[in-house]
Amino acid sequence: MVSASKMSKAEQNAKGFVPYADKIQEVVASIANSNTDVSHPMLNKREVKKTAYLVITSDRGLVGAYNSNILRNLFQTIEKRHNSKDEYTVIAVGRKGYDFCKKRDLPMSNSIIGMADHPTFNDIKELASETVQMYSDGEIDELNIIYNHYVSAISQKVTAKKLLPIENLDAHAAVNNDYEYDPDQEQILEVLLPQYAESLIFGALLDGKASEHAASMTAMRSATDNAGELIDDLSLTYNRARQAAITQEITEISGGVAALE
């Protein structure tokens, strides 16, 4: 019940974010596509020496396979793509992700624990801007994000996305406006792209939170159902045992009376 109300709130939060995300994507796409001679480090692919993985997990357990799915995906991706620990780093959101990396001794460059149930942009802002900064400083050459995408209350899907460098903007190029830029495109991209990347991280966090509450709701419900079944089974066994004991006692008494006669 608690999770159900948390989930609907989280779903609303995720929905409230959509207009912002759409708009910022539209503007970024129209700038990036309008002119081929604008370039920005965040739009250009470069040789990948170090990859960062941002994983969004929960702080608490009791959420079914929510965390294990994400962490398995992370682990498999790392196994498949990297040979040494210098080639990647993990940024963990949530205690489960943090503990996982600690236990397996994965390199971790940043982490955040104790995220609110309904995070605001301020909660994640610092981590997001530090992460984007790491990319700008050349510390990492690629940023991937792994989180649970909220499909519906009963279905969440592990999603791995490449966030930086920013690609795949063409899909939204349909809305192409001829803007004036003040002062100029390069400087606008300077402001816009980090904000865009941060907003994508926040969007993934909201999506992940909605999934977390949904997963915890499902997990709790099946726990309740299972406990109910167990209680039914056990009371049946108890009643049988009680009856057997009574029957035995009666048999003994009547046996004793018969022996006296």
Binding site: N13, G16, F17, P19, Y20, K23, T120, F121, D182, P183, Q187, V191, S199, F202, G203
Partner: peptide, 26 residues
């Protein structure tokens, strides 16, 4: 319309908008 990551703050019609861009008031 004024939009932030936590949702829309304001929507409405107005005669004029004055704000401060990086290059000056507009």
């Amino acid at each position: 319309s004024v939009v932030t990551p936590s949702g829309p703050v304001l929507e409405g019609s107005f005669d004029m908008v004055v704000c401060k861009a990086e290059t000056g008031e507009i």
